[in-house]
Computed example of a mutant assay.
Amino acid sequence: MTTNTISPSYEDPTVVAVDPSSTSSKRQQRIDKAMVYFSSFMFLVQIILAAVFSGIELHYGVDYRYQCPIEPMIPIFLIVHGATKFVWVAMSILAFINARIIYGMMNKAFARHFVLPSLLFQLVFALWFFAWFIAGNVWVFSNKSHVQSTDAANTSTYCQNTLYSAAFGLIISTYIVFGIVAVLTIKRRIVGKKIKEKLPSNPDGNHNKT
């Protein structure tokens, strides 16, 4: 006669159960945050400013394409920078429409398909924009001490004054705009966090809207 022994089962402490609903909820929260960003007034202001800067850069870069022999890359910098911004403006308008109209008013499930591509595009654009912008800084500022615009025959130091001034001014303006946007974004998040902390909470931890 054989007796079966039942061995006690032990749970592996390294195995962590993942709640699918929790994962889905976090993913939905990220999507909602992305939609809030793409549909925000701040994002719309960035689109408008980028469109204005893009037009100015393309105008000066194309019109004065061969008038800066001291550094031929300065007009190319403006052309590429302006063209890159133009592409970003076009894609950002689509993201804004997707977040504000499709997601907000029409079809959330359909709009979610465009969230990840929009975020990836923003990341790629930011990396490329930063790299090219730094290169433009080098081309413009490294020649500031010896550039001149009165003797076109002296090609080793000549750059058309309007072109060089436009490139110089646009770089400085970009720094100023970035600073303003960064300050406003940080301020808005801090204020929003303080407002949430002051709102009364339900027993389940959710804030009541007053």
Rank of each mutant, 00 (worst) to 15 (best):
F178R: 00
S165Y: 03
L199I: 04
S173K: 02
L199R: 12
T3P: 01
P72D: 07
P117M: 01
A90V: 15
K187V: 08
K144C: 05
S145R: 10
V18N: 02
F96V: 09
H207F: 09
Y64Q: 00
Y164C: 08
A99Q: 03
T14K: 01
N154K: 11
F53V: 06
Y37K: 11
N154Q: 05
I74N: 09
A17R: 10
D12G: 11
E71Q: 15
N202C: 11
S173A: 15
L78I: 08
G192D: 02
S22E: 14
I186G: 05
N107L: 02
C159A: 03
M73G: 07
P69Q: 06
I56F: 06
M91F: 12
L49F: 14
N143V: 10
I76W: 15
N206F: 12
F96S: 08
H146M: 06
S149V: 07
K194E: 01
F77H: 14
K209R: 04
A131V: 13
E197I: 01
L44R: 01
I134L: 13
P75Y: 11
Y158T: 06
C68M: 09
T3W: 05
E197M: 14
T5V: 14
I47Y: 09
Y103M: 05
T2R: 13
A83K: 08
T3D: 13
Y64I: 08
I76A: 14
S145L: 13
Q29P: 00
T185Q: 05
F168A: 01
G61C: 13
S92H: 11
I101P: 03
V89T: 07
R112E: 15
K194I: 00
N137Y: 09
K209V: 13
V183Q: 04
V138P: 03
S22N: 06
V15C: 00
C159W: 06
P72S: 07
I101K: 11
Y37T: 04
V45G: 04
E197A: 15
F43H: 11
M106P: 00
V191Y: 03
L199D: 04
G169E: 03
T210G: 06
L94I: 10
S149L: 10
Q28Y: 05
L116I: 15
F125G: 11
N206C: 10
M91L: 14
M106Y: 08
R100C: 04
K194P: 00
P117C: 01
S39K: 05
R30K: 13
H146E: 06
L184M: 15
L127V: 15
F130S: 08
N107M: 07
T84K: 09
H207I: 14
Q122P: 10
Q148S: 12
S7A: 11
A99S: 15
F133K: 02
A109W: 03
V191C: 02
L170H: 13
K209C: 04
V52P: 00
A182S: 14
I70D: 03
V177F: 15
L184R: 10
L127H: 05
F129S: 07
P69V: 06
G61F: 14
H207C: 09
A17L: 12
A34K: 01
K193M: 09
E11P: 00
R189Y: 08
A50C: 11
S25F: 07
A34N: 09
P72E: 08
D151V: 06
Y60G: 13
I195M: 08
F168N: 09
A50E: 06
Q148T: 11
S149K: 01
G55N: 06
I171Q: 10
T14A: 01
G136S: 07
